[in-house]
Simulated scan of single mutants.
Amino acid sequence: MKKICSIFLMPLFLWSQNLEELVSLSIQNRLVESSQNSLESIQKEYESVQSGYLPKLDVGANYSTTNKETASVADKSYTAYASLNYKLYDGGKKYDVYRSYESSIKSNQESHEALKNEIALDVTNYYFNYLTYIAAKEAKQKEIEQLQSQYKRLSNFLAVGSTTEDELEKIVSRVEIANVDLHEIELNIQTILHNLEYIVGEKVNIEAGSFLNDVESLTSDTLRYDIKALEYDMQTLLSNAQSEKSGYLPTITLDNTYSYYDKQFNNPAWDSNLDEQNIFSVNLNWNIFSFGETYHKYQSKYK
């Protein structure tokens, strides 16, 4: 019989979790996973923005035919081209955008760590509250056992007239109150287990035997993750505002387009020897006046 009991009790011990295991499971839950996905998303977006500032190469081809040939429009025409474009200067907006994304990424990283710390703290509180309630439950059960033993003992005294029924009624009342307290403790224990299962994402069976790191090992000059995240958020906002000031400055772009033509004229007189062409251009655009648009954009971002 003892062997059978051992077999049934073995999974209970195998599935028990201490504080370290609970914390490790909790910081891998769906909420933390979602936070990690958000961080990776903004990192990919930053890479996309960086790629947008690199030179762009476009290629294309065209075939056309017309029902009425002219000197400028051949009966049949084939065109192929390759175009290279690069924004040489944008008023410094590129670097402000880079700084904005870098601050935003750091903010998300700090928020991610803050979330894990918050979850770990909640799990730790639940864990030690659970152990406290377990100890209170054991103490309350012993109290009920003592009251019941006392009731039996006084019942014998009542038979010989050494005590009164009032004394027995007092014990009965105390037992009932203790039972109510015991049910409340058990309810609190179940509530903690349900909360832990919600955070961890699996069945929880707590075992005692955990420790906390020495508080003195934490350096006092280390900022909390959530405070760091707020500081990086502020840097992001300032970079976004600064990027709007680029509207006061000119933008310079470089373009180079190579084209190949094959125009087939029915009229030989209109035939041209031009079959390829390369055009290189430097373009400057400067918005001198826009009714305060740039100013208001900057103010909206800054405030």
Rank of each mutant, 00 (worst) to 15 (best):
V49Q: 06
V200K: 01
V200S: 00
L154W: 04
G209E: 03
E21L: 09
D221S: 02
S111K: 11
Y86F: 09
S246L: 04
V97H: 04
Y225K: 07
T132V: 14
K56G: 14
N37H: 07
K87E: 15
V215D: 04
K2N: 15
D262L: 02
V97N: 12
K116Y: 01
N85L: 01
M10V: 14
F280C: 08
Q141A: 11
W286G: 14
A114I: 02
Y302V: 10
V172K: 13
I252Q: 03
Y53T: 01
G161P: 15
Y89P: 02
D214T: 13
S272Q: 04
F128Q: 08
G209Y: 02
V32T: 12
K142D: 11
F280I: 15
E244L: 01
L31Y: 06
L9E: 10
K106W: 02
I134D: 08
S26W: 01
R153T: 02
S246M: 08
A135S: 12
Y86Q: 10
T70P: 03
A269P: 05
D255H: 09
I227Q: 00
S243D: 09
T132Q: 13
V97I: 13
Q277A: 09
T294R: 08
L238E: 06
V123Q: 07
Y151T: 05
L84R: 06
A114G: 09
V49S: 00
L274C: 11
L284M: 11
I171A: 01
K87V: 15
S173T: 05
H183G: 03
V123Y: 06
E186I: 00
L230T: 14
S155L: 06
N278I: 11
G292V: 07
E102C: 00
N287V: 12
L22H: 01
Y261F: 12
D166C: 02
L12V: 05
E169K: 12
S41M: 07
H112T: 14
L121R: 13
L237E: 06
I177A: 04
C5D: 12
F280V: 15
G91K: 10
Q50I: 13
K297N: 12
I27Q: 03
L168R: 01
G91M: 06
N125Q: 07
S64T: 14
M10Y: 09
S51L: 15
